[in-house]
Amino acid sequence: MTRSELIDEVTSKASNFTKRDVEVIVSTLFKSITESLGRGEKIEIRGFGSFKVKDRNARKGRNPKSGEGIEVESKRVPFFKAGKELKERVDAGAKPHSED
């Protein structure tokens, strides 16, 4: 399912809204989550899951091609943890399709 398929499906179920409205809402949604994570905040959506930022310490890495040692700087990474309902539904649901 892609973003546009998601928009189509939501539009078909939300009778009060045009596709354009749903597009705006979906964009706003993911934009807000992105911005909020950018501020280092945690986003919690009941039944779905939570997004937060994790810190990664600086470490010594190696360029896998040349074998040369390099310093990897500390950074922050976005992280998603599935909520209880989502976890249970995914586990009880169908096996993942192998194709993309």
């Binding site: 399912m1 892609t2 939300a14 009060n16 749903v22 993911f30 992105t34 779905f48 399709h97």
Partner: peptide
Amino acid sequence: EVVDQVFESIKCALEKGDKVKVSGFG
């Protein structure tokens, strides 16, 4: 309702074993 539906649709797709790709997000 629309916001709920967005998350519900994502959950349904995942439940069916589909992957959900939101461009620009993840």
